[in-house]
Amino acid sequence: MKKIYILFILLAQVTYGQISIGQESTFSTDNNFEGWDNLNTSFTPVSVAGGFLTAGGSPSILPGTLPPNRLIIDNITWGGNYTSVGVGGIRFEARNLSGEDMDLAILLFDNGTGTNITIAESGSVTVPASATNFETYTISLLPTQLTVDGPKSLDDLLIDVLGLSITRIDDNGDGTESLDFDNIKVLSVAELSLESYLYNDSSVHVFVNAGTLNVTSSNSTIKTVRIYNITGKLISESLGNKANVSVLSNGVYIAVIQDVNNHVISRKFIK
């Protein structure tokens, strides 16, 4: 289903871009979609007015294949090498005047076609029917929070992303619902509000000794340690609970730690 939708996106796209940390769509000018106008309007009617973007659902153009509530907005000016840029996640404001809870996820996709499309899907957030005023939501794009489908590995996709979609993934409603979006922003790893989606385990500690970062936990076994600089750029990835930091310059870094239960937690450390 995701691949079928993305195929329609690619048929409609003509403009490419490079994502950067901190770039933001504020929709401050009426009818200026700020890159979010690269949409297949057979799926999602959109408008920009009053300082926000409104995206509506629509009846499926592929009955039996795509549900009738497929509310999706996408943007290929936000493509590029997510790994080298250090993209950590997307933050946005949304409000729901439709009376139906809506579950949203982010899809990252490449420029493949048909069965050659590779898509990475994030975890989801719920914009509840009670969110009738704008509220802030954060979706992680850390590799440990993504699942990939297609011929490419996740690592290969993340260095060559064509664009992203914010998509509704629940099957509630009848396709007439809509959401208002505002202040969609690209976050670095360092900027993420980690408590909102990462496992909180006070037993996890990090310390540097003789050029090695050591991670200890009394509750679980550590699977991987990824090290990012303060701007969110990935520096290294190591298996187990140790990472070589001897070649790093002195400064502040972030260790993103995944345990064998796929829980993820972040710790800052000083080299």
Rank of each mutant, 00 (worst) to 15 (best):
I119W: 08
N116K: 04
I166S: 02
A94H: 04
T118G: 06
L162M: 13
A94N: 09
D174T: 12
E195F: 11
K185H: 01
S84E: 13
T132P: 10
S193K: 02
N172Q: 08
T144Q: 14
N81G: 00
G89P: 03
I139Y: 09
N133Y: 01
T176G: 06
G114Q: 08
N69F: 09
A190M: 05
L66P: 00
L107K: 02
L187Y: 07
I73R: 02
I117E: 12
I169W: 00
D160C: 00
Q145P: 00
L108E: 10
G86N: 02
A190Q: 10
N172F: 07
S178A: 14
T138W: 13
E191Y: 07
S196E: 14
A105Y: 02
L146C: 14
I139S: 06
Q145L: 09
I117K: 06
L194Y: 02
I76V: 13
T126W: 06
I184H: 10
D182V: 11
I159Q: 15
R70N: 13
E135D: 12
D110V: 04
E191R: 10
N172Y: 13
T126D: 04
V186M: 12
V127D: 05
S98K: 03
N172E: 07
D180T: 03
T113H: 07
N183A: 11
G88L: 05
M102T: 04
K185G: 00
I166Q: 07
T77P: 01
A190R: 09
F92L: 11
N81D: 15
T144A: 14
G175C: 07
I73H: 03
